[in-house]
Amino acid sequence: MTVEIRHYTAGGLPEIRQTILDIHAEVRHKDFGLTGPFYSVERFNERLSTYASRPGWTAAVAHEDRDPVGFCFGVPLGPDTRWWKPMITPLPEEMTKEDGKRTVALNEIVVRRPWRGRGVAWQLHETWLAQRQEERVTLLVNPAAGDGAVQAVYEAWGYRKIGDQQPFPDSPIFASLVRPVKRS
């Protein structure tokens, strides 16, 4: 299935913010039953604003006809990034030294239930990455999501686990994964 994917920079966030928040609530709360302060729409909106305030933030939103079906967004890791700080086992410095051009973090990728299993997440992911100039992409995944199936999907996309981290005191422990932006 092919969907229409539109790209946005931080300047376009007001146009897509409510769509992103609505999809987040539908998928995280209704579909996956994720509750608690960390998963609240308010906290997610705060994180969205924080990510979008950083240089280089971009998003991609997929539509089929007029229906929004999913989104992804991320931001490059700058020299002052805290991304690698919450690693449970610290990584070597050569893995974590950032300059704003080396690594882009895929902060979120979410697809609504009726469009899951149809290749939409892959299309979003690859279309978003095609616009990126960084060397590598990193993301966090809850290893319990889908009884490990979500992490397995990322690994099938070429990601490899490099460790675990807990970025917020009330967040789950996430697997930290990385892969080249351009696959050979």
Rank of each mutant, 00 (worst) to 15 (best):
M1R: 00
M1I: 06
M1H: 00
T2N: 12
I5L: 03
I5A: 01
R6T: 15
T9I: 13
T9S: 15
A10K: 10
G11Y: 13
G12C: 09
L13N: 07
E15L: 02
I16E: 08
I16W: 03
I20Y: 02
L21P: 11
D22F: 06
D22I: 12
I23V: 14
H24M: 10
R28F: 13
K30L: 14
D31C: 03
D31Y: 02
D31Q: 01
F32M: 10
G36Y: 04
P37T: 12
F38D: 14
F38P: 01
Y39R: 11
Y39L: 14
V41C: 13
E46H: 00
Y51V: 09
R54K: 05
P55L: 07
A59Q: 00
V61Y: 06
A62H: 03
D65K: 09
R66N: 14
D67A: 14
G70N: 11
F71Y: 04
F71M: 05
F71Q: 08
F71L: 09
C72M: 00
F73M: 12
F73H: 08
G74Q: 06
G74M: 15
V75Q: 07
V75R: 04
P76W: 15
G78V: 14
G78S: 11
D80L: 14
D80C: 12
R82M: 14
W83A: 13
W83H: 14
K85F: 14
P86Y: 09
P86L: 10
P90L: 04
P90D: 00
P90S: 01
E93P: 00
E94F: 10
M95R: 09
T96L: 11
T96N: 07
K97E: 13
E98F: 15
D99L: 08
D99W: 12
K101W: 15
K101L: 15
T103S: 15
T103N: 11
A105K: 11
A105D: 10
L106W: 07
E108Y: 02
V110E: 12
V111W: 02
P114E: 02
W115P: 03
G117K: 07
R118H: 10
R118G: 09
V120M: 01
V120E: 04
V120L: 05
H125R: 02
H125G: 02
T127I: 02
L129A: 00
L129R: 00
L129F: 04
L129W: 01
A130R: 06
R132H: 11
Q133T: 12
Q133I: 08
Q133C: 13
E134T: 15
E134D: 11
E135H: 09
R136G: 07
V137W: 06
V137Y: 05
T138E: 11
L139N: 00
L139E: 05
N142M: 08
P143Q: 05
P143H: 06
A144N: 01
A144E: 07
A145T: 01
A145M: 05
G146E: 04
A152E: 03
E155V: 00
E155K: 00
E155G: 05
W157Y: 04
Y159V: 02
I162P: 05
G163K: 08
G163H: 01
Q165E: 05
Q165R: 03
Q166S: 01
P167V: 03
F168C: 08
F168L: 03
P169K: 01
P169D: 10
S171F: 04
S171N: 06
P172S: 09
P172C: 06
A175I: 04
S176A: 08
V178N: 05
K182T: 15
K182Y: 04
K182M: 13
S184M: 13
